[in-house]
Design a protein around this nucleic acid. Sequence first.
DNA 1: AAGCTATCCATCTGC
DNA 2: TGGATAGCTT
Length: 800
Amino acid sequence: MSIYDSLNTEQRKAVEHTEGPVLILAGAGSGKTRVITHRIAYLMDECGVNPWNILAITFTNKAAQEMRERVDKLIGFGAESIWISTFHSMCVRILRRHIQEIGYQTDFTIYDTDDQKTLMKEVCRNLRINTKELRERTILAAISSAKDELLTPRRYQETHQYDFMQKQIGEAYEEYQRLLHKNNALDFDDLLMKTVELFNAREDILRNYQDRFRYIMVDEYQDTNTAQFELVRLLAGTKETGGRNLCVVGDDDQSIYKFRGANIRNILDFEKVYPDAFVVKLEQNYRSTQMVLDAANAVIDNNRNRKSKALWTRKQEGSRIHLRQFNTAMEEASFIAEDIERKKDLQPSLNYRDFAVLYRTNAQARLLEERLIMGSIPYNVVGGTNFYERREIKDMLAYLKVIDNGRDDLAVRRILNVPRRGIGAATVEKVSHYAVVCGDLGFFETLEKLCDGPVTGILSNAALGKIRPFVELIRSFRAELEEGASLEDLMKSIIGKTGYEEYLRDTEEEDADDRLANIDELISKIVSYEEEAQELPDFAEQAGDTSLLTGFLADVALVADIDEMDGNQDRVLLMTLHSAKGLEFPQVYIAGLEDGLFPGYLSINSDDRDAMEEERRLMYVGITRAMDDLTLTCAHSRMLRGEVQYNPVSRFVTEIPDELLDERTGLPEFSSYRTSSQWGGASRPQQSAYPRQSAYRQPAPEPPARRDTRLKAVYVKPHTPDEKKPFIGKASAGLASLQKGMPASEKPDYETGDRVRHVKFGDGTVLAMEKGPKDYKVTVLFDDAGQKIMYAAFARLEKL
DNA sequence: AAGCTATCCATCTGC
DNA sequence: TGGATAGCTT
């Protein structure tokens, strides 16, 4: 009996067809990851392929990690030498070794969306672009699409010279690239484009990688853009070079990233580019009930531009799709919270982690959060405000960036006056001007020159007196690093020497504790990065000849929201439909199903019919996340940007045949909804008289009274360390007060003197515990790692 | 230099 | 609604 016996016929074909181009059209839940992992195992076990000759590209770091684990389980050895990574981290690895060939330094930094915006502001200032008429974001979007299509500034200008605005964009693009280069920085799109550029410039380097990656697999192929396609095409090579052993896996029905450059033609035309491609369709679904699949098929059937396929399952028919409509978004949110509890009561085997609530826009999370908190239901929100986008984290990272790459002007300017050093805009202006005069020196370099050299007449002595300590400070950090300080030590030194903690406490007493906790969290991320790097045999190879710090900063720049998701905690998960791709849950809610919200008004008003088709694919992705039970909800009115909006029921709901939708069991007051005219099966929602009053005037069902106490009991259960994350994102700042009352800040089950265990630091003794406003601050003396002060909620200490 | 208020205006989705 | 920013005050 072999590991391949568990595969179905089609899966097995896909696994065993190892040579030449292969296209696997894998419907949702058709065991795609199984196929890829088994294929890798097959290559190594049966075909004698070396693990280091295999490259597998996934969409997220999380997927990469999971794939490595699964391959590891399958073959037991050698999996660590396979390249499994995302496009972006693969490009970073390659560029770290070779980017000097195309004129950058190997310790380049990566700019995130925020940095891009800051840089673009400077571009617009330099070029006197009126940002009222042409917004930075518009320019950035245009540049991003250009890069996705591998258009250089020059090529862009050649093809966009007739329209004034496009001409301006062309110039902005050129200037933007100049500044990026000056800062030795790349943006996300550059990572791909520069790698292609490198391969085109240096055939020998390309040949090198072609020789190395004899077998290439690309997951989520429907979401690749032109640059990614080109990259893969180059690496796969020809029969002579590289071998063309390229296997792509995807589902055109799940292509949902057009807005970020994904080109659905990549998958639709794969057979045109590779006429000899072997094509396999995986249509058997192992995830969902027939009812869910029927709904998904019915919806996606309205799309014209697709390869036809139909999912089927051997799973039971399942219960019908639940559809609930409410007056307001508040009621909708309440219902979801209550329904989760109701289902758990009905089916005690269900855990919180079996539930996911999906929505179109991150803004919807807020209301849902509020109601979940009110119901004491533990949850996590995926995404929204990324951890690394928080101000205090960006400040810390900026220090690290300046220490690492003195040419990153943005970072220097960010921290120059943080904490306050009395260095203001006037001084910055003078310094940047002088930098230009000196022939485009870096900002920090200029500061150094002003401090060290006998330059006079630029800055007042008062200003110099403020700048000098800053320059010295950065130099001292660099010295520490050179003398072998760990990144952890460095971070602590930064906090200590800058007085960042006091700065936070002085300026924003309100959430200073949250922010400090975030910084603690950053430190523990650094610690685990350092540990992992030490364990990794080929770290040096990955990093080129750059430092640990450079590596850490790059890693940080490339984390996606979904990478941070922890599915192991017993919590309901809230996330956008986009983030949900690739995941599955027994119980799924899709909220906010209203025309104007989902599909969004932009796609409704768009001339491009494909915009609507993309929304529909998103709906398809949402539906197919459900294993057993799917609940669709919508509201007549919801508050959007400060005003109440009235939207008709989503057209996607009406695309689901009546017989797949349930009777409103248990909630009789809702049964009238379905009988109103707009719920008539396939008929389009009449965009008619909103708001409609009479039929919908019923209050949200009251929660059963007993619920609260019972829940709290669950919540506090000692073996369920369901701590709230101390940080409260911008998006949910208003929830902070609600959360304060939560049992989350319950006293930990250990006390001073107890022995405890930490995931990273090992065992230790609690020296002190101090109650902060939201959480306990615990001081622990670890046997190996020394003394640490941490927040109880983060530390996740386990009493021994 | 830094903190405050008034005013504008907009954002879907994310590496 | 709330964030970003311009312009004002101290």
